[in-house]
Design a protein around this nucleic acid. Structure first.
Lengths: 326, 326
DNA sequence: GACTATGCTGCAAACGTTCTCAGTCTGCGG
DNA sequence: CCGCAGACTGAGAACGTTTGCAGCATAGTC
C-alpha cells in the first residue's frame, strides 16, 4: 500500500507538504502542488481514511440506520443518502436493524462512535436512545428531533381528502399503521384536523401491520365502517386491502376508492394502479444528508427542521362515489 | 470520548491489559479481565475502530457495491449482507453506483482502500476494475470471479421450461436483459442447452432495459414470435410485458403465459400474480458475506464458488397452452 | 535451592495521517 | 546593507489502538 511517505520521497518533499498539497492546496506553492499531485496520481496514492480520521477527529463517514433495507420506502431514502454522501466525499455505514427496537439502540450507540453523525430513518420514537447517541449530530427522518427532515403529512392528507371529496366521497376510512409510528400519529392528527373543512367524515380505524396481511386484515373493518373510500398507511397495506375486498366481491374503485401512501414504485405496477400520496423519498435522503453535512461543517444551529412537500398521484384506484355507503 | 487510557486508569491496569482483556480475553487473568470489562461497561467505553484498524491493518468494515439500492433485487442482497456483517461484528460501507459503469470502477478502488474486502453485486462484467481492486479480497455476486456466489440459472430455467412444457407450451420466448448482464448470458446459454431435452422450442429475443418500459417494448416482439409463453429477464420486465400485451387484447395466462425472474416481493402483489423463478437473495447476500469473512480469516483458498439453488414459484400468470400459437 | 517453564502484565513502538510550530528563503522598504 | 514581512516548507507531536518484547512473579522440576 502506497502511503504519504512514498509520495513524499518520490516527489522530493516532506510528508507535511504532501498532506497539505492534497488536502489544503492553497497553502502550498503551485509548482510543488502540481508535482505532488502528479506523483500521487502516478503512484495511485489513496489516503488512508482511518488514519486521517484518527488524527483529524472525524471519520469521513456517516451512519444510516434503517429498520428494513428491503422495504422500498427505506431503500429509497437509503439511496438518496448514499448518493448525496458520495457527492460530499463521505462514506455511508448502513445498518439494518431488522425492525428490532432493542437492537436499534445498541446499534445507534455503536454507529455514533465510528461515524461523524447519524441519520436515523426509523419510524419508532426512541427518545432515550437518541440521547444516548451522545455528542454526535443526529438527523431523524419523519420524526421529531433537533435535526429532522419530514414529509408534510398534513398537506398529504389534505390533498387526499380534497381529491376524494371532489369525487363525492363523504365518509373516508383510515387504515393506520403501527401505533409506535410517528408518521401514523401525524396522519391521524392531520386527518382529524382537516376532515371538517373538507366536508368529509373521517373514520380512523385501528392499527395494522404495514404489510399485505395487515391490509387484508383491515378489510372487514373497512367494509363495516360504511366508508366509500379509504386511505391506507402505505402502498403495501393498500395492495393487501384491495385484494381482500375484491375477494368479497367488491370492485375498486367502483365500490371502494383506495388511496395508498408513499407512492412507492409498487403503486403504478399493481392492478388497479394505486392512487397514492407520495413524497420524493430519495430527496428526503438527500436533504437529510445535506442537513447532517451542514451541521458537521458548523454552518447550522443545533436545531433545524425541514419539511418536504407531498404530492398526490392519481391513478386508477380512486373514482366517483357511486353510492351513499356500502 | 472515553478511551482505553481512561479505562486503564480507572481499572488500575495498563492500556495493554485493557486492550487484551477486550480483544483477546484468554490472554489475561480472569479476575483482571472481569474488572476491566466491568469498568469498560460502566464508563461506556467503545473502542475507536479507526485507531484499531490503523494499527491492526484491518478496518473492521466491508464494502458493498450495488448498482441501484432502490431495486428490490439489490436491496434484498444488501439486506442479507448488512444483517450477516453485523453478526460478524463488521460494518458495511454501501455504495450505490447509480448504474454508472465509470463510477463503478472508481468507487471500487476507493472502497478497497477503506475496507477489508468488497462484495460486488454489479451485473456488469468489470474484469479490468476488479483487478484494480488490488490486493483486497473481492466477492462477486452472480458473476464470474475467484470468489463468487451465484444463483443456479440453469436449474432455474430448467424448472421454468419443465413447468411450461407440462402445461403444453411448445414455443417459449425469452425476453432478455442488458447485453452486459452476466446473468442474462447465463440464462440464454442455459435455455439453449435445456430446450432440446424439455421438448420446447426457445425463441431468444433481443436485449431490453430491465424496466417496465423494457417489458412493454418487448410486447410486439413476443407476440410476433408465435410463442405461447414467455420468460422474462426479471419481474419488473414481466409486469411491463403483461400490461402491454393486455392492452393489445390478450389475456394472461389464457393467451400468453408469463414467467418472471427473481421472485421479488413484487411478484405476488401484481395482477395476475407472477409465476417467477426465484432465489433467496437475502441468503445470497449472507453467503457472500460469509465467504468474504472466511477469506479474511484465511480459512479459504483464494478461489471459491458457491451456487445457490433456485426455485420456481407458480402463481397466476402461467396456465395451459390453449392454442398452438398466437 | 537453583533453574526453567508458564502465565500475566507493562513498556514502547508502530500504523498513516493532520496540524502546530519553528524554521528558511525571498523580496522589499528603509 | 539591514531588518522584516510574507510565503512556503519541514520536523515532530499527536490521534487511539494493537502487539512484540521484556520483566516479573509464581509454580514446577531436578
Amino acid at each position: 500500500m502506497v502511503t504519504v511517505r512514498d509520495v513524499a520521497r518520490s516527489a522530493g518533499v516532506s510528508i507535511s507538504t504532501v498532506s497539505r498539497a492534497l488536502s489544503a492546496p492553497e497553502k502550498v506553492a503551485p509548482e510543488t502542488r502540481d508535482r505532488v499531485a502528479a506523483v500521487a496520481a502516478q503512484l495511485g496514492y489513496q489516503p488512508n481514511r482511518a488514519a486521517a480520521g484518527l488524527r483529524a477527529g472525524r471519520t469521513g463517514a456517516l451512519g444510516l440506520l434503517v429498520p428494513d433495507l428491503a422495504n422500498p420506502y427505506f431503500a429509497a431514502v437509503a439511496k438518496g443518502v448514499a448518493q448525496r454522501a458520495r457527492e460530499h466525499g463521505l462514506g455511508v455505514f448502513v445498518v439494518d436493524s431488522q425492525e428490532d427496537e432493542a437492537l436499534e439502540g445498541e446499534v445507534l450507540r455503536g454507529l455514533a462512535h465510528q461515524t461523524d453523525g447519524v441519520i436515523l430513518a426509523s419510524p419508532r420514537a426512541l427518545e432515550a436512545d437518541r440521547v444516548a447517541a451522545g455528542t454526535k449530530p443526529l438527523v431523524v427522518v419523519n420524526q421529531d428531533g433537533p435535526l429532522s427532515v419530514v414529509t408534510d403529512a398534513a398537506a398529504g392528507v389534505t390533498l387526499a381528502l380534497a381529491h376524494l371529496a371532489g369525487l363525492g366521497h363523504r365518509r373516508v376510512a383510515y387504515v393506520g399503521g403501527p401505533a409506535t409510528s410517528w408518521s401514523d400519529g401525524q396522519r391521524r392528527h392531520a386527518l382529524a384536523a382537516v376532515a371538517a373543512e373538507s366536508g368529509v367524515e373521517v373514520v380512523p380505524l385501528g392499527a395494522h401491520p404495514p404489510t399485505v396481511e395487515g391490509g387484508a386484515s383491515a378489510a372487514a373493518e373497512v367494509v363495516g365502517s360504511g366508508a366509500t373510500a379509504v386511505i391506507t398507511f402505505n402502498d403495501v397495506v393498500a395492495v393487501g386491502l384491495v385484494r381482500a375486498v375484491r375477494e368479497q366481491g367488491l370492485r375498486v374503485p367502483e365500490d371502494l376508492s383506495v388511496v395508498g401512501f408513499d407512492d412507492t414504485f409498487l403503486a403504478p405496477l399493481v392492478t388497479p394502479a394505486l392512487t397514492s400520496v407520495g413524497a420524493d423519498l430519495r430527496e428526503v435522503g438527500r436533504r437529510a444528508t445535506d442537513l447532517l453535512v451542514a451541521r458537521l461543517a458548523g454552518e447550522l444551529e443545533t436545531t433545524a427542521s425541514l419539511s418536504l412537500p407531498t404530492t398526490l398521484v392519481v391513478r386508477e384506484s380512486t373514482g366517483e362515489a357511486a353510492r351513499a355507503s356500502l
